[in-house]
Nucleic acid binder design. Structure first.
Lengths: 231, 231
DNA sequence: GTCTATATCGGGATAGAC
DNA sequence: GTCTATCCCGATATAGAC
């Protein structure tokens, strides 16, 4: 039987195409990434690419789909195990930063960088919206769990938007300085401040409720990053 | 003398080209914006565009240059008149949000959205870096003035980066929801929190110092946008 | 499933009349 | 300064042998 090896080779080619396409599209954007670039980068001829995918838009959709799968697998869905708010927040931010560090291209693609409006067809844009919304929902559920905001959906929404905008901005900065990572410390400070500003009780943060500790501390709580972010 | 009208017409054509090119490039990105799109959008034939500008890259550089001029004119350079930290912060954020609201395309272009890496040539990328750096410098000087950080340049740098990343993220969000504006309230809350976290004394913010007012006010101070932004 | 070869179209850029 | 007409190349996509 030679069918199995052939199928295997096809699947590996498909993966290779998606790998290089994701790399190139996240770096150059959808419009600036040509099929020939993908072809020369991954070694396979153009028509093989068209055998695996109907069109350029099809490649893009497939890249998005796989990036979503990988990324959502890397993001524990809003369980946030810690008992303390600070611990849960650290776990959440650690997950976010870990995903950003390990799958930066996926983050860039899912946040919609790389496409601008009608570059791609309507179907592709709809997919981008879907995946982007999925990320937003994950962030909203996570912060809702971190700060116990079941009855304050507006606050959860604002905190999630705030977090994702910082993430987007950092992804943009990565275009110019590839070494940039998502800094968790500013978010660890500002998210509780935002929550407190909306009247959400937050323990261990500089809010007027508990005057016992006046100094927030120069050093962060030094909670170790949660292991297990890398599957 | 017919020279004056002719020159005037040429200058107006040049402006029209830059207007439409800036609009299209900020919406579709550099690579996805074609000369023919610009031609049909502004009415002038392709060769007229090439008479005014050497190449597509030349158009892009000119668009960036003009956006920088307009934007930096709309941003009072780090004077920040208020006596109180809160007042100065409000003025700063009001200026930033006003510029974002009135020149969103310029902000998008200067922040580097619309180009991804080597889309344009090396010269254009260098220009993007220059202009982006100018924006960063403006933000750093502004926050330095707001929080009196002459002797804490590191803190000024972090606050400026934080602010511009939020701005970048908001600009990205504008691709998907064109109505999105730069929200000043989260920044008004989080910037003092970040400053306080670094040991910078901040008066009138929800830090343990002054518990008199806990609510900074739901409504914005309604500081008028600076006039004279549109020449 | 993979390759060579090719059709077709649109992009950037130029020539030269007016 | 503006227009028409054109060159050249690269991009998407397809045909058909292997």
């Amino acid at each position: 039987m030679r069918q199995a090896p052939a199928q295997d080779r096809g699947a590996r080619s498909r993966d290779a195409i998606l790998d290089t396409a994701g790399e190139l599209m996240s770096r150059h954007g959808y419009a600036a990434t040509s099929i020939s670039m993908i072809s020369t980068a991954c070694g396979l001829p153009v028509s093989s690419i068209y055998w695996h995918f109907r069109s350029k838009e099809g490649i893009y959709v497939a890249v998005l789909e796989r990036a979503t799968t990988v990324l959502l697998a890397a993001l524990p869905p809003a369980e946030v195990p810690g008992a303390d708010v600070t611990q849960r927040l650290d776990a959440f931010l650690s997950n976010l930063a870990g995903a950003f560090r390990q799958h930066p291209r996926g983050v860039q693609l899912l946040l919609g960088l790389g496409v601008v409006q009608k570059d791609a067809g309507a179907a592709a844009m709809a997919e981008v919206h879907r995946y982007r919304d999925a990320l937003v929902a994950w962030a909203r559920n996570s912060v809702s769990s971190v700060f116990a905001l079941r009855d304050r959906p507006e606050v959860a929404d604002e905190l999630a938007r705030f977090t994702l905008r910082m993430t987007s901005g950092t992804a943009v900065a990565r275009w110019f300085e590839p070494d940039v990572v998502l800094e968790t410390e500013p978010l660890r400070v500002t998210l509780p401040a935002l929550a407190a500003h909306h009247g959400v009780p937050v323990r261990g943060t500089p809010v007027e409720g508990g005057p016992g500790e006046d100094a927030p501390g120069e050093d962060a709580p030094a909670l170790g990053v949660t292991p297990g972010t890398a599957p």
